[in-house]
Simulated scan of single mutants.
Amino acid sequence: MNLPKVVADLVEAQNRFDSVAYANCFSETALVFDEGKTHHGRKEIEHWIADSNERYKATMKPVGFEEKETESLLKAETSGNFEGSPIVLTYHLEIVDELIQSLKITG
């Protein structure tokens, strides 16, 4: 599967549980929407993913990718320490200047 570099970097960082590298895939003003909460900016995103990694130890295996006009959709089999694992989640990405500007994760 041919993923944009920033998406491939995001998956690799997640699978290494590297919260700094994960956050560096986002712009300084990026937003993440996950589990009913919004995380603003790279520092908040880094704290959110570090906490998530600690709790869930989730890894991602891309199973589909589609680019639309205003967003890209990454479908990934996500496995970890959570009920229902593994599950296919959809990562709704807005990519601007090769960085992620927004991410919304849905089931």
Rank of each mutant, 00 (worst) to 15 (best):
V88R: 01
I45M: 00
P4N: 10
E98P: 10
E44G: 02
D97Q: 08
D9L: 03
D97I: 08
L93F: 15
N81R: 09
H40L: 07
V96Y: 02
D97Y: 07
E66D: 07
S52G: 05
K37L: 07
A8G: 09
W48E: 05
D51R: 11
I100D: 13
N15I: 11
A23N: 00
E46G: 00
L89M: 03
R42G: 05
L10A: 03
E28C: 08
Y56R: 09
E28V: 12
A8M: 07
W48D: 03
K68P: 08
V6G: 01
F65H: 02
L10I: 08
E66F: 10
N15G: 07
A21H: 00
L93M: 12
S52T: 09
G80P: 11
P86C: 12
D51G: 15
F33M: 11
I100K: 15
G36W: 09
T78N: 01
K68L: 15
L31M: 09
Q101R: 15
V96H: 04
E94S: 12
E71S: 13
E66A: 12
I45Q: 00
V11R: 00
V6D: 01
K43T: 13
F33V: 12
Y22F: 14
Q101Y: 05
T70F: 14
Q14F: 00
T29H: 06
S19K: 06
D51H: 13
S85P: 05
A8R: 12
S85T: 10
Y56Q: 05
D9P: 04
M1A: 12
N24H: 15
A30D: 03
E12N: 13
T90Y: 03
A76T: 03
V6I: 14
A30V: 09
S52A: 14
D97R: 09
G80D: 07
G36T: 08
E35S: 14
S79Q: 05
R16P: 05
A21R: 00
A58K: 06
K104E: 14
N2G: 04
E94Q: 14
G107Y: 12
L99F: 10
A23M: 00
T90W: 03
K43G: 03
L89Y: 02
L99Y: 07
H39N: 05
H39E: 06
E12A: 14
E54K: 15
E54I: 13
A50F: 05
E67Y: 05
K57V: 08
W48A: 05
E98Q: 15
D18G: 02
S19P: 07
P4Q: 10
E94R: 14
D18R: 01
E67C: 08
A76F: 01
E44D: 06
E83T: 10
Q101K: 15
S102V: 07
S72K: 04
A30Y: 04
I87G: 02
F82L: 06
V20Y: 00
E28W: 11
K5F: 02
E12L: 09
T38F: 11
E69T: 12
H40T: 10
T78S: 00
V6T: 11
K75Q: 08
T29S: 08
S19N: 06
I49D: 01
A23K: 00
A30R: 04
S85G: 04
H40N: 10
K5E: 04
L103P: 04
G107W: 09
S72N: 04
K57W: 11
A58S: 14
V63I: 15
Y91M: 13
K37H: 11
H39S: 06
I105G: 01
K43V: 12
F65N: 00
F26Y: 02
I105L: 03
V6P: 03
Q14G: 03
D9G: 03
H47R: 10
P4H: 09
